[in-house]
């Protein structure tokens, strides 16, 4: 009974002056309004505003992280490609060197073979030339011997007026002449040397 009376009295007192000075440290009904207002604000922010912001931030962080990972991967790929390129280049160089070396060796071998062949050919040609010369010389010697003998005998016969048709004698004379000639030549050669 007392409480409603007090309440109505308070209400009346409050209505009397629109502007009322009270102890500002004591909360009044506004407290509940503020409580509700903040609770509503908190609920709306926590429910509708903050989660999407968090999500967006995380998404962006993830995107940046992924981008950096991608860059890192690309860098590694590039470096590995460079490595591969370098090794391939080195391999190619080595291969080229090897080929060049082989070619040089082969060339040298071919040259040597050809030289050998040439030498052999030369030797053969020289040999055959020698043989031919010897044969021709022999032939010339034989023909010379035959013709010089007859010529000389004819000449001598004509000079001495005596026929030197006797083969045996003429042959002896020619032989002696020839051997004299040879010995004379040998002596001359020795003199030249001496």
């Amino acid at each position: 009974m007392a409480l409603p009376a007090i309440l109505t009295q308070l209400t009346l007192a409050a209505e009397e002056g629109e502007k009322e000075t009270s102890n500002f440290l004591i909360p009044n009904g506004t407290f509940f309004v503020e409580l509700g207002a903040f609770a509503l604000l908190f609920y709306l922010l926590a429910r509708y505003v903050i989660p999407p912001i968090n999500k967006a931030m995380e998404a962006r962080q993830d995107a940046i992280r992924a981008e950096f990972e991608e860059v890192e991967a690309a860098k590694q790929q590039a470096s590995s490609a460079e490595e591969e390129y370098k090794t391939q280049l080195a391999d190619a160089r080595k291969e080229a060197n090897r080929l060049r070396e082989g070619a040089r060796e082969e060339g040298a071998q071919i040259v040597a073979e050809l030289r050998e062949q040439g030498e052999a050919e030369k030797a053969r040609i020289v040999e055959s030339a020698h043989a031919q010369i010897a044969a021709e010389r022999q032939q010339a010697l034989a023909s010379l011997r035959a013709e010089v003998g007859s010529l000389a005998t004819t000449l001598a016969g004509r000079i001495v007026g005596e026929s030197l048709e006797d083969d045996e004698r003429s042959a002896r004379v020619v032989d002696r002449f020839l051997s004299d000639l040879e010995s004379f030549e040998v002596a001359k050669a020795q003199d030249g040397v001496g």
Partner: peptide, 29 residues
């Protein structure tokens, strides 16, 4: 500590505070 007040159901409400609270809350939202 002076406020424009209204009284309802035995409770006093500081109207100016409530209005400015609503304005601030509305801005934040």
């Amino acid at each position: 500590g002076e406020h424009t007040t209204r009284t309802a159901g035995g409770l006093t409400f500081n109207i100016d505070t409530i209005i400015s609270t609503l304005v601030a809350g509305a801005l934040v939202l």
